[in-house]
Every structure is written in C-alpha cells, then in structure tokens.
Write a protein that binds this DNA or RNA. Structure first.
Length: 273
DNA sequence: CTCCAGGGTTTGC
DNA sequence: GCAAACCATGGA
C-alpha cells in the first residue's frame, strides 16, 4: 500500500499528508494517522483500504499486448480503491464537475467546517463530513425539518452557509441531494443491494449527477470495481493511446481498478499530453 | 488578463 | 437522437 499515491490518486479529497511522512484518513467520525511504513490496519480500516483484495495478482493478469496498461499499473503499484462513504462521495463528486482538484478540496473543507463536527487530535483540529441531517439542522438552526415542505427546506439551504462554500452553479445540486435524503426519496444504505445498472439509474435521479459522477460514486463508495468512470483524462487516453476504443470493459470486474491506475498515470505524466 | 478545471443540463437541429 | 451552448468561480 502506497499512501502517497492513494492520497494523490483523485478518488478521495480529504485524506492528506498532515506532517512529512504521516498521512491522515478520515471517514465518518473515524480518523487514522498512518506512516508510510505502516503494518497494522484493523477494524473498519480493513474494509476502507480494501485489504482483502489481491492487487498484485490483478496487476499480473494484465495482457502483455496492453503495454500502456502495464506501464500505468506498474506506476500505480500501491494504489487501492478506497471504500468511502456514499453520501460523502455524492457531494464530493457533484462538486468535482468543472473544478480543479485543489478547488474541490477547498470547497469540501469549507462545507465540513460549516456543517461538520469539530474533532481535535494530536496533529490538528478537523471537522467530520456532515450528514444531510446535519446540513439541514444547522441550516434551520435546530428548529427541525418536521413537516416542513420540501421547497421550503430547499430555499433555506440555498440561502445557508452552503453559499459560502464556492460551489457556484453546483449549489442547487447539493441542495437537491440534501432534500432527497431528508425526504426519503433516496436511501443510500439500501443502494448496496441494487445491481450496478439499477444503482447508476438511482444515483442519476439526483440533480447534477450524470454518467461520470454516478460511476465515481458507484466505484468509490459501493465498490463496483467493474465500472470505469470516463472523465477528461481518461478520454484523452482513450483517444490518444487506444485509438478511440475504450479498453476498460475487457477488464471485467477489475475495470475500475485499471481506470484508477490510468488516471493516476495520466495525472503524473501530464507532459505527455 | 486569459484560460481551464475528474461534467451536467438545456437548447436547437 | 446528437452536437453545441451555457453554467460560476478558484487557481495557474
């Protein structure tokens, strides 16, 4: 496992190197600080870091004729597909559209500081990623959603501190997502039971969630590793390297892992484009 | 100042 | 159906 590569691999936005050589990961109200030479990963983090999957074996099964994939996988050795929180992935990847990665991180941290729960550790003060209920409660200043009409909550959210999170035109998408969860129009826990096709359709009901964002949520939260989100970087590779033919479907149930290797490879070899 | 960012929705043909 | 216009705003 290579923590530096995972932090830089574009699948997560909050994990970071807090002091040289020490990396912080956070999910829900769980925080862990790891050194590069970590050895013990226990409890919920076993699942989070996808420890039960044999990535070396997966890399060894890449066909020899796919030289670009071979190179990308070698470069990305140590990357894992994190099993992250569905709500956090929905909000994070809605924010991600047409934003640079530093700008995405900045917006997400502002959202956490405004609506999350403060936690102090030996390294830092950090805020949890707020649930939909926490965002609604703080917006309504504790008066509760009760039998509040959806439209009223939506308008209140549009005027809340969310306005200060640099969300731009995505603000109304975030407000829609909060409303969907609060009013039970989507149940994120029950989505684990859907097959991938149904999962993508359900996710795309959310305003501002299209094909790419839905695929990212399905891959990074619901661990649908057969899905390979196609973004601008992947598109550049498909067109520039693979002659316009998407190479990922042939990788079957590990296509999403290959996508992550390619994404990291493209990001760290920008000069080749 | 200009350009572009891990896209999605709306509009026009 | 498909391509093009439009979207807000931080970084570079």
């Amino acid at each position: 496992m290579d923590l530096r590569k995972i932090v830089d691999s574009g699948q997560c936005f909050r994990p970071a190197e807090v002091v040289p050589g020490i990396y912080r990961f956070i999910t829900g109200d769980n925080i862990i600080y790891l050194k590069e030479d970590n050895s013990v990963i226990e409890g919920i983090w076993q699942d989070y870091f996808d420890m039960d999957r044999d990535y070396a074996k997966i890399r060894s099964q890449i066909p020899e004729n796919d030289e670009y994939m071979q190179a990308a996988a070698k470069c990305g050795e140590g990357i894992r597909i994190l099993r992250q929180d569905p709500w956090e992935m929905i909000i994070s990847f809605i924010i991600s559209q047409r934003k640079s990665i530093p700008a995405i991180r900045s917006s997400i941290e502002m959202l956490c500081e405004s609506f999350g729960e403060m936690m102090t550790t030996e390294y830092e003060t950090i805020y949890t990623f707020p649930s939909a209920a926490m965002i609604a409660d703080k917006t309504l200043k504790g008066s509760g959603t009760g039998n509040l009409p959806r439209e009223t909550l939506f308008e209140a959210l549009m005027e809340s501190k969310l306005k200060d999170c640099k969300l731009g035109y995505r603000l109304r998408y975030i407000c829609d997502a909060v409303c969907r969860v609060i009013y039970g129009e989507i149940d994120l826990d029950s989505l684990y039971n859907l097959d991938s096709e149904e999962l993508l359709l359900k996710l795309k009901e959310i305003n501002g969630v299209g094909d790419k964002v839905a695929n990212c949520i399905a891959l990074f939260a619901y661990s649908r590793c057969e899905l390979a989100p196609v973004d601008t970087w992947i598109k550049k590779v498909i067109d520039g390297v693979y002659g316009g033919i998407n190479p990922f479907p042939q990788y079957g149930d590990v296509a999403g892992i290959m996508q992550q290797y390619i994404f990291y490879y493209a990001l760290t070899h920008k000069e080749e484009f």
